[in-house]
Lab assay of single mutants.
Amino acid sequence: IINNLKLIREKKKISQSELAALLEVSRQTINGIEKNKYNPSLQLALKIAYYLNTPLEDIFQW
């Protein structure tokens, strides 16, 4: 999986903590996703895309 979450999140000036709060997950979860240590569920990936107002395929590429 190619993961552009960190790049997109930083472009939008959103911290890991802010995104985690919006998604109701821990900051460690966001960190793990960004470091490719954790693959989000489809539901979480869709929520990330929604809150970042970015197409899912721009954030994650399988």
Rank of each mutant, 00 (worst) to 15 (best):
47 K>I: 05
21 A>L: 11
29 T>P: 01
39 N>M: 15
24 E>R: 14
53 N>M: 08
53 N>K: 10
44 L>Y: 02
25 V>C: 07
14 I>Q: 04
50 Y>P: 00
36 N>E: 08
9 R>A: 02
39 N>V: 15
16 Q>M: 09
55 P>E: 06
51 Y>K: 06
25 V>R: 03
37 K>S: 11
50 Y>L: 11
18 E>W: 07
41 S>P: 12
39 N>D: 08
30 I>S: 00
42 L>F: 13
23 L>A: 11
46 L>F: 07
25 V>A: 03
8 I>E: 05
42 L>A: 06
52 L>M: 07
39 N>P: 14
37 K>Y: 15
4 N>W: 06
23 L>P: 00
21 A>N: 12
9 R>L: 05
1 I>Q: 09
24 E>S: 13
10 E>V: 11
59 I>E: 00
29 T>L: 15
41 S>F: 04
55 P>N: 07
48 I>V: 05
25 V>S: 03
20 A>W: 03
33 I>P: 01
10 E>G: 06
31 N>W: 10
29 T>G: 03
5 L>M: 12
53 N>G: 11
14 I>A: 02
51 Y>S: 06
59 I>S: 00
15 S>A: 07
9 R>I: 03
20 A>N: 01
33 I>K: 02
5 L>C: 04
10 E>Q: 10
38 Y>E: 09
6 K>E: 08
11 K>E: 12
28 Q>F: 09
32 G>T: 09
53 N>I: 05
22 L>P: 01
15 S>P: 05
40 P>H: 03
20 A>C: 04
32 G>I: 10
59 I>N: 01
48 I>L: 08
12 K>P: 00
7 L>D: 11
34 E>N: 02
37 K>V: 13
2 I>Q: 13
2 I>H: 13
8 I>L: 07
54 T>L: 05
43 Q>V: 13
33 I>H: 01
43 Q>Y: 13
46 L>M: 15
10 E>P: 02
7 L>N: 13
28 Q>R: 14
3 N>I: 04
32 G>L: 15
21 A>P: 01
18 E>H: 12
9 R>T: 02
13 K>H: 12
31 N>L: 11
33 I>W: 10
38 Y>L: 13
25 V>H: 02
11 K>V: 08
32 G>F: 13
14 I>R: 04
57 E>Y: 10
44 L>S: 02
53 N>L: 05
12 K>Q: 14
22 L>Y: 15
12 K>A: 14
47 K>S: 07
5 L>F: 02
59 I>D: 01
23 L>Q: 00
12 K>M: 10
40 P>F: 06
29 T>I: 15
49 A>L: 02
20 A>I: 03
18 E>V: 10
57 E>G: 11
7 L>W: 10
53 N>A: 12
47 K>F: 04
18 E>A: 12
40 P>S: 03
49 A>V: 04
24 E>M: 13
1 I>S: 12
1 I>E: 07
29 T>W: 11
41 S>G: 10
55 P>I: 04
39 N>I: 15
51 Y>E: 05
45 A>F: 04
13 K>S: 10
30 I>G: 00
62 W>V: 10
21 A>V: 08
57 E>K: 11
4 N>C: 09
9 R>G: 01
56 L>N: 02
62 W>K: 06
61 Q>E: 12
47 K>N: 06
52 L>Y: 01
61 Q>Y: 14
12 K>W: 05
27 R>S: 12
50 Y>K: 10
52 L>D: 00
37 K>A: 10
11 K>A: 14
33 I>E: 00
46 L>A: 06
57 E>P: 06
44 L>A: 03
55 P>W: 05
34 E>L: 04
55 P>A: 07
21 A>W: 07
60 F>K: 00
3 N>L: 03
45 A>H: 02
27 R>W: 15
53 N>R: 10
48 I>A: 04
58 D>G: 04
35 K>Y: 08
56 L>W: 05
19 L>I: 04
13 K>W: 06
13 K>N: 14
22 L>V: 12
16 Q>C: 03
44 L>M: 09
5 L>Y: 00
29 T>Q: 09
50 Y>W: 11
36 N>L: 10
50 Y>D: 07
26 S>K: 09
48 I>F: 04
14 I>E: 01
31 N>D: 15
52 L>E: 00
14 I>P: 01
21 A>S: 11
61 Q>S: 13
15 S>Q: 06
25 V>E: 05
25 V>W: 02
21 A>T: 12
49 A>T: 03
61 Q>R: 10
18 E>R: 13
20 A>R: 02
26 S>R: 08
40 P>N: 01
21 A>R: 15
4 N>A: 05
54 T>D: 02
38 Y>R: 10
46 L>D: 04
57 E>W: 08
29 T>Y: 15
37 K>L: 15
60 F>M: 02
54 T>Y: 06
10 E>H: 09
19 L>P: 00
1 I>D: 07
23 L>R: 01
62 W>E: 07
59 I>Q: 00
45 A>W: 10
49 A>K: 02
8 I>K: 03
54 T>M: 07
13 K>I: 05
9 R>S: 02
61 Q>I: 12
11 K>H: 10
11 K>S: 15
20 A>F: 01
24 E>Q: 14
51 Y>T: 10
27 R>G: 08
29 T>A: 10
36 N>I: 04
2 I>S: 12
50 Y>V: 08
51 Y>L: 10
16 Q>K: 07
